[in-house]
Simulated scan of single mutants.
Amino acid sequence: MDIVDALDARRGTTCFVGAGGKKTSMATLARRLDRAVVTATVRIPIFDGWVEEVVVTESPRTAIDGASAWPLGVVPAQERPDRYRGYDPETVADLADVDHPILVKADGARMREFKAPSDREPQLPSTASTVVPIASVHVVGEPLTDAIVHRVDEVAAITGLDPGDEIRPQDVAAVLASDRGGLKDAPADAATIPLLNMVDDAALEASARAVAEAIHDRADVPRVVLAEMRADDPLVAVV
Rank of each mutant, 00 (worst) to 15 (best):
V140H: 03
A109E: 01
A188S: 12
T41R: 03
D34N: 11
G49P: 11
V225I: 14
D233C: 14
E79A: 11
G66F: 07
I64W: 13
A6T: 00
G164T: 07
W50H: 12
P71L: 02
V17Q: 05
H138L: 15
T130F: 10
T62Y: 09
T130I: 11
A27K: 13
D97Y: 01
Q170R: 15
E213K: 13
P45D: 05
T14P: 01
V37Q: 07
P45E: 05
D97R: 03
E113M: 15
V131G: 07
L7P: 00
T28D: 15
V139L: 08
A135V: 10
G21E: 10
K105S: 02
I64T: 09
A40S: 12
A208F: 06
L72S: 08
Q170I: 09
D220F: 12
N197D: 01
L144R: 09
L29N: 12
T192V: 15
R61S: 10
A210P: 01
V17K: 03
R85Y: 02
V239W: 13
V54C: 04
V139W: 09
Q123R: 14
G108H: 02
D88I: 08
A157M: 11
R31N: 12
A40R: 04
I46L: 12
D165T: 02
P81M: 00
V37C: 02
L161T: 02
D153S: 13
V98Y: 02
I158H: 03
A177V: 10
W70V: 06
E52S: 14
V239F: 14
G141M: 09
D232G: 14
A157E: 13
